[in-house]
């Protein structure tokens, strides 16, 4: 017995009440099924990208996502009313990962100091750009990486603070620190010259 009853009770024919109630519940479930499918297919990549900003094991991320979405489906009638169901999914999957991580108490991925030095050729396409960014992000402090990735996915500072459980003024600072950190890593890897924006008053002058 759940919230479905309320809407069924409003139906006009009390004679056929039971059958209609069941038909209505089925219709509602069907519509929720479809709604949830669309939500999952649309949000999955974003959530995954955000979680992968940290150095978590990919398999662990997959498992946590699976579980978070399953619980999301169970509670969908409630969660669908949230401002942004994806925010709940991120927070839930992330909490699972944090707890799981503590329980096993070990870093599955390579620690930053052991990462092989960057020796990438030119970044040719969007996919390579994304992968490169990810390896850099994973060398950042976890909070900076998460905040940066979430802001890239379009979350506002306030939303980020609430989803990750951060102080309001921290988000801006973490984002700036992340960008500075990334710029350093990019420069270390030899990506220093902007190729499509020539700064008019640039110190180097035209070449």
């Amino acid at each position: 017995m759940s919230g479905v009853d309320g809407s069924a009770a409003l139906l006009p024919e009390p004679v056929d009440g039971e059958a209609a109630q069941r038909a209505e519940a089925l219709r509602l479930k069907k519509s929720h099924d479809e709604e949830f499918r669309v939500f999952t297919e649309q949000s999955y990549h974003t959530v995954e990208r955000i979680l992968r900003a940290r150095r978590w094991d990919r398999e662990a991320i997959k498992d946590a996502l699976q579980e978070a979405y399953l619980q999301g489906r169970v509670q969908w009638p409630k969660i669908r009313t949230y401002t942004e169901p994806m925010a709940w999914t991120i927070a839930t999957a992330r909490n699972k990962l944090l707890k799981e991580h503590d329980r096993r108490q070990r870093e599955r991925a390579m620690p930053p100091e052991d990462l092989p030095p960057e020796a990438k050729p030119d970044i040719a396409d969007a996919w390579e750009a994304q992968e490169t960014l990810r390896t850099w992000l994973q060398q950042l402090p976890a909070r900076q990486a998460e905040v940066f990735q979430m802001s890239r996915e379009g979350f506002s500072n306030q939303e980020i603070a609430r989803i990750l459980g951060l102080a309001d003024i921290s988000v801006r600072r973490y984002k700036a620190a992340a960008r500075q950190h990334l710029r350093q890593l990019a420069e270390q890897a030899g990506y220093t010259d902007s190729d499509n924006r020539r700064r008019p008053g640039g110190a180097r002058g035209p070449r």
Binding site: Y191, T192, D193, D195
Partner: peptide, 9 residues
């Protein structure tokens, strides 16, 4: 190429 270009790409 710099960080902004990579981000944009």
């Amino acid at each position: 190429m710099d960080l902004d270009d990579i981000l944009a790409l």
